[in-house]
Design a protein around this nucleic acid. Structure first.
Lengths: 345, 345
DNA sequence: GTGAAAGCGCTAACAA
DNA sequence: TTGTTAGCGCTTTCAC
């Protein structure tokens, strides 16, 4: 077992001081060409690599970002995680993952654990933490950015889609498609994403002279969504919506299955279905779901941007509340208006 | 910005030595009831929490596990990641994620980076690393376990499904179902999972007096699988397979879509389709895919078990090669034999 | 440009 | 049981 090689050993072999070795491996440091060469050679021969943890201790920068994430069964998150992790890696950071569940209210405990690792920043994906805790992070000088969850807490940044406007657009689309009895299956009602999507949808509906024809709670859960679909559609034909907005794709797939296979309804002939997220299966032919695209790449970009800004300029950086616009992806699960997009003027 | 609270400050406030504080926060240490109380109180008041990194430096144990993972678009991995992360958390470890791509052969570089974090162990999910690198890890005293990828390298553990036996079972199922022209769409041919599934499938076919009727390469990629399906099925009817085993579910969905919507074939009437993994969408009614279940929970259990064994008993632990059996999940995408499971005797 | 020296916050002997 | 002491491997003044 070839034991750990330290900078001191490299120094001895290169015939320089230990601090010289440190400088060679420190990006912004100065060393003569000769020294650099000697050191690199010795390091190479010994298989030396700097100990990130030791560096973190003295510099106070761990280059670790803590990520709190709740549920990976919504396929938006694996996608986002992949992009986020890659983006951070490119900046020389790495992601320490902390799983938690939305319901098991131990999120605060998880965040404490994260802080113990002296992370340089925290990203929470779709989980809410107490504003108490947010304060603790701020006080500890650890910037927090909420991904896909708007948080009004002062001082923390959040990056989401423009869920409100996305909801509005969906309503316009459905109404333009001639639908008169429009239903909505909600996400988890504690989530800002859910609230914003619903508010935008209903406001827009109102603008167009309609109101929600039916509403059921889905909690962002496939099983509950299925039940919601049943409650909403397993009724006399005249009480059946002719279109339904399901608060995210994950639920929408379950709803479509229930509609087609459970209730023998045709999509979009009997009922139009639209979702939100545009996760990969939305594009699968069996679903072909019309949905609002959450642009994970842009969201991540903004997240990383905000995070690094706070890390690098602790005093001057100002919290951001970013809302990314969501293009409507028109596919086959909902009747398409004759005129779409709407004519100008 | 309430600056970092150190154990020294707690010590002063509690009127004890700094090491007393350390002991109170070290699981297996001894301290009198009185001391414990004083220290806990002081720590509480100051909001003290031990610095994991400092602890790691001196103890040599970081309680960080490095996870190298390639592609999260196969939904088996998010699932596995979630279970793994939770299992490790329960043992007081955390997961540092490193993304890489199968193709971009920089896996070795990634592993070097991992080592820099002084991780206590490494899990690679479905990626191969050079045996050179495996050696480096062993030499550094960092145990490696390969998840879902068999590696013959001496000294490293691997946990997979019993892919060979799974392949065999699928062949038995298809043949018992009366299929005579059986095709196979491969995964990435460099993967042990792919090789084992195919070997088992073909060996079993041979035992039953058949051979592969058609074979196309799918590379575990949805697009390539679609193309493969087209190449295999867009032919004169008599040259068309009556069943196809697709090397994983992720590809199977694309194949089913292509068969139904591209070629207007009925599943399972015109062609039976079976997959491997049993990811959540396999159970969605629109696919209802008959497939071999990879039991992620058991696989993770074995992975964690092996890893901790190596970490805790560096000298005595012996590398393990675990293969978890895979139950066949019979759904509607393939014709079901009249007699199934086969009668004994 | 370079080396000496002082720690970062903690654990682990060692004495007491 | 407790306090004292010596580092873990590194970055960073500070003289030279």
């Amino acid at each position: 077992m070839a034991e750990k090689v330290t900078s001191l050993q490299v120094a001895e072999r290169a015939g320089v001081s230990q601090s010289a070795v440190s400088r060679v491996f420190t990006p912004g440091a100065s060393a003569s060409k000769a020294t650099v060469e000697k050191v690199r050679k010795a390091a190479e021969e010994l298989g030396y690599r700097p100990n990130v943890l030791a560096r973190a201790m003295v510099s106070g920068k761990s280059r670790i970002i803590g990520l709190v994430v709740a549920y990976l069964d919504n396929y938006f998150y694996p996608e986002a995680l992949e992009i986020l992790s890659n983006a951070l890696q490119e900046q020389g950071y790495h992601v320490l993952v902390f799983m938690t569940s939305q319901t098991s209210g131990n999120i605060d405990g998880v965040v404490e654990e994260i802080l113990d690792y002296q992370v340089d920043g925290i990203v929470t994906a779709s989980v809410a933490m107490s504003s108490d805790l947010s304060q603790r992070c701020l006080q500890a000088g650890v910037p927090v950015v909420h991904f896909n969850r708007f948080e009004s807490t002062k001082g923390v940044s959040s990056v989401t889609s423009d869920n409100y406007e996305g909801g509005r657009e969906l309503a316009r689309f459905l109404v333009a498609g001639g639908h008169k009895k429009i239903g909505y299956i909600t996400g988890w009602e504690g989530a800002s994403t859910q609230r914003d999507r619903e508010a935008g949808f209903c406001d827009s509906l109102a603008d167009l002279g309609q109101t929600l024809f039916a509403r059921e709670v889905g909690d962002f859960d496939a099983d509950r969504a299925r039940a919601a679909a049943n409650a909403m559609f397993n009724v006399a034909p005249e009480n059946r919506p002719d279109a339904v907005f399901v608060a995210n794709d994950h639920m929408a797939f379950a709803v479509m299955d229930e509609l087609r296979f459970g209730l023998d309804l045709k999509i979009p002939e009997d009922v139009s279905v639209v979702g939100f997220d545009d996760v990969p299966p939305a594009a699968w032919r069996a679903y072909d779901l019309t949905t609002m695209r959450q642009r994970a790449n842009l969201m991540v970009e903004e997240t990383v941007d905000a995070l690094l800004d706070h890390i690098k300029n602790p005093s001057t950086a100002t919290p951001r509340k970013v809302a990314i616009s969501t293009p409507l992806i028109v596919r086959g699960s909902a009747r398409v208006p004759d005129i779409w997009p709407p004519q100008e003027g």
